[in-house]
Simulated scan of single mutants.
Amino acid sequence: MAIGIILGAAVWREGPSPTLRRRTLHAAALYQSGHITSLVLCGGVGQHPPSEAAVMQDILLGAGVPMDAMVLEDHSTTTGENIRFARDLIHETDVAIIEVVIITDWYHAPRAKLIARRAGLHATSSSPSLRGAKFWPQTKSALREIPAYIAYAIRLRT
C-alpha cells in the first residue's frame, strides 16, 4: 500500500498558487488511478490564510477524492517539517504502509527524498507535469534548490 504526501506550496491572496494547484491535482490523479490509497496534505498558514493543507483539501474534494482518503497536516512551514509531521501522522495509523510517494515538483524531489530517508521513510517521488508552468519561476526554484540540497546533504539543515 502506498500513501501520498503532498508537500506544501504557497497560498496567494487570490487562492492557491499554480504550484500548489499542480501538485494537488497530480495527487488526485495518482489517487484516482490507484497508485496511492490515501494522502497526507502538508502545509500550515503562510503569508495568506487558510493553511496550504486546507486549500489542498478543497481542490481534492473538487477533483472527486473522498474526505476519508485525506489526513491534514496543517502546522508545517518547511519541507523538513512537512515530512516529519506527515511521518508522525502516518505512524499514528494502524495501516501498514509499504511505500510513501512524495508529491512535489521535479526540482524539489531530490531534497525531499533525502529528508524522507533521514526520517526513516521508504520514499519515492512523483512530480506533476510542467504544462502551464512558467519558465522563469521553475528556473528560479531549481536554482534555489542547489544550495538547499547541498546544505541538507552535508547536514547543515535538518
Rank of each mutant, 00 (worst) to 15 (best):
A112E: 12
L72F: 04
V95E: 15
S76D: 06
S141I: 04
A133Q: 09
R118Y: 14
E145V: 05
N82C: 01
I150L: 14
A27S: 10
P66D: 01
V65T: 01
K140S: 13
V11E: 09
G64H: 00
P66E: 07
M1R: 03
S125I: 06
H122W: 02
I146A: 06
L130P: 10
I3T: 14
A112Q: 07
S17R: 00
G15P: 03
L30Y: 05
H108I: 11
G15C: 06
E92C: 08
V45P: 11
P110R: 04
A153G: 13
V11L: 09
W106M: 10
Q32M: 14
A54F: 07
H48K: 02
I36E: 00
R23S: 08
L61Q: 13
H122M: 10
V45C: 15
G4Y: 08
A96Y: 04
L20I: 03
S141W: 08
V40D: 02
T79I: 05
S51G: 07
R22T: 00
P49G: 15
L20W: 11
F135N: 05
A96R: 06
S17H: 06
P49C: 13
P110H: 14
L72M: 09
A148C: 10
S125D: 15
P128S: 08
H108R: 03
R111M: 12
R155I: 00
R111A: 11
V100P: 03
L61F: 06
Q32L: 15
P110N: 12
L25A: 04
I5D: 11
L25C: 07
V55S: 00
H35L: 14
S76I: 04
S125G: 14
I3P: 11
H122I: 14
R155D: 07
H91C: 11
H108M: 05
H26Y: 12
W106K: 03
I5H: 08
T78G: 13
W12A: 11
G4W: 06
